[in-house]
Amino acid sequence: MSSEVDVNKLYRKVRGKKIFFLFILTLALLAITIISICIGPISISIQDIIKAIFGENPDENLRAIVLDVRIPRVLMAVMAGTCLSLAGVIMQGLLRNPLASPYVLGVAAGAAFGAALAVAFGLQFIFGEYALFMLALVFSLVTMFMVYGLASARGVETETLILAGIAIGSLFNALVSFLIYVSGEKIYGIVFWLMGGLWGADWEQLFIIFPVLLGGIVITLNCSWDLNALSMGDEVAMNLGINVKFSKIFLLTLATLLTAVTVSLTGTIGFIGLVAPHIVRIMIGSDHRFLLPASGLVGAMLLLSADTLSRMIINPAEMPVGIITSVIGVPFFVYLLMKRRKRWWI
């Protein structure tokens, strides 16, 4: 049966290529991470960085810069980028919609509103930082299922879903503006934070996002076959023995959780969750077993590069990272839209 052997061989060859691609991406991310740790408004040589971390009597300012500011920020960019991309992949696959992403579906706006609400009422002083996440999560879940509900009321069509997302997203944006308006100058950070920023990234925040990310990676990788099936359509998935309704709600909740935690730590950062999965699809196709980790890596690289740029462009001033991701993301998105019209999510 020579043809069968050929298919297996072919499969193994393709799979090998994809694994190799993942390997290259990992190396690239590692390289960008190291570069990002080494460059900044204060140039520090790699020897000094190693000395600052492991040395016996390091310069305490250098140590503070490297350990308390730069490394947490770089790691935060990596994790936030990964979370947003994973959320993007899940949303695009489940909703069978190439334009779906935390930003486009209004989920990020919902999370922003929840967090802004917490800030406006000073809840973080009463219940601690977790009030922020809880409210962000609650409102992003509300958005997600409102959008999904609105869209499925008419049968989930590409346009309906996006329009529902835009509508509800604008509603929450308006509510955030309202909060800022009524709270006046008291609501210090909200505007800045909505622009997207990693300025204040610290270890404490990393300890919050890390378990969420880790859980997200493990769960999504375990569900990658389900995602493959679901992205072929509900009927196909049902015939493959998948509890469609449960899987959808479970995975959408997971994607929303990833978004909510990221948004409440960094503000809304657009286009990472949209663009990263598409870059990977163009290169290695849409098998979720590879698409998920590869998108995570690409998203991490994108956000990390954007943030490093934002630190460097008008040194020592900073550009809000949201501006840079949008500037990179929008032309790319238009390019994608023009180039590949069909079959980009299966």
Binding site: G40, P41, I42, N61, A64, I65, V69, R70, R73, F192, G197, W199, G200, R311, I314, N315, P316, A317, E318, P320
Partner: peptide
């Protein structure tokens, strides 16, 4: 820039 967001590590250094 008249008003700016200045880099965190710049402040420390």
């Amino acid at each position: 820039l008249k008003y700016l967001t200045i880099n965190n590590e710049y402040i420390i250094s």
